[in-house]
Design a protein around this nucleic acid. Structure first.
Lengths: 156, 156
DNA sequence: CCCAAATAGTTTCATATGAAACTATTTGCC
DNA sequence: GGCAAATAGTTTCATATGAAACTATTTGGG
């Protein structure tokens, strides 16, 4: 005879994908952060700002916020401390007085070019657990999941 | 004629796997957190503690810390506030006076059984971007990456 | 052209967090 | 058996963080 009681749902954390993503992400970001924080005293938000400015100089703070998925307060604070350390410089926008254009200083650029290979190396270390085919597959599946999350799980 | 200058490494954030993992993980965890925080006033660390206790009652705080990848301070604080809210109870260990055995109260269990289906539903919503084969593949690749990260990128 | 609403960015304040110091108990070795 | 080292958990303190209020500038409709 079939049981009448509906089995109560349980959660096996080790198989729960949001949890696995979080643990993996924290480990990897933490490993990278350990390097640049020890070597240059950079916080995670600071490095994120430097990363986008190294790739695309002249962005406004708002642009940086969008590209890094940070909020504008975090960006404002990271920029303030990066300017104090003379790693980022600010210029007024010709047309819009509310905006400032941000870029790495010479010193900031030097740091950027020292961190990037390290970051790429650690990424490669992680991905070396996968074969070439598997890497391409993982890349594709991550894109699908990111699109789905963007669609269904808006921030804030 | 071949260029002599070695191109300086650049970082394309949109293709950088640690960054993509972080954005995806934050979006998904944030979406789940929004629900249980609005509905029950639970913080992320609090929910994590409840999640492992719901699955395995009788763990010590240290066990909880290991299983959730949280540190012992976070666990201590989450447990303290969960006990205030009568969602978690504590019992002395028969053999070791330093240890306390944690479990969900009846009230905590009720909340657990309400959140779990929601969490599983959101996981499913995310994974519905993938076909059945793709899901299995993603699962396997995540396991490989997690193992690699555990090996090469120890916490702290 | 003027003023209300929108936008960029900063500051303030209350809370969250992490590292280090601390208490209590147990373990292990002489 | 007794004491130094290890372990479980809490508290303290200094810093990080986020939400909301604030300033300055620009935009757009009447």
């Amino acid at each position: 005879m079939p049981s009448e009681a509906q089995a109560l749902a349980r959660l096996d954390l080790d198989r729960f994908m949001p949890y696995r993503l979080s643990v993996l992400s924290n480990r990897v970001s933490g490993a990278i952060a350990r390097h640049y924080s020890e070597r240059f005293g950079l916080s995670i938000p600071e490095w994120r700002v430097m990363a986008v400015l190294g790739d695309t100089p002249g962005l406004s703070a708002r642009d940086v916020a969008i590209r890094t998925a940070m909020d504008k307060v975090q960006v404002s604070r990271a920029v303030a401390s990066l300017m104090r350390a003379r790693r980022v410089a600010r210029a007024e926008d010709a047309k819009d007085g509310r905006i400032t254009r941000l870029s790495l200083t010479r010193q900031g650029t030097a740091i950027y070019h020292e961190i990037v290979p390290l970051a790429l190396h650690l990424e490669d270390l992680l991905l070396s657990a996968l074969g070439a085919d598997e890497r391409r597959t993982f890349d594709r599946l991550m894109d699908k999941l990111a699109r789905q999350a963007r669609l269904l799980m808006p921030p804030a």
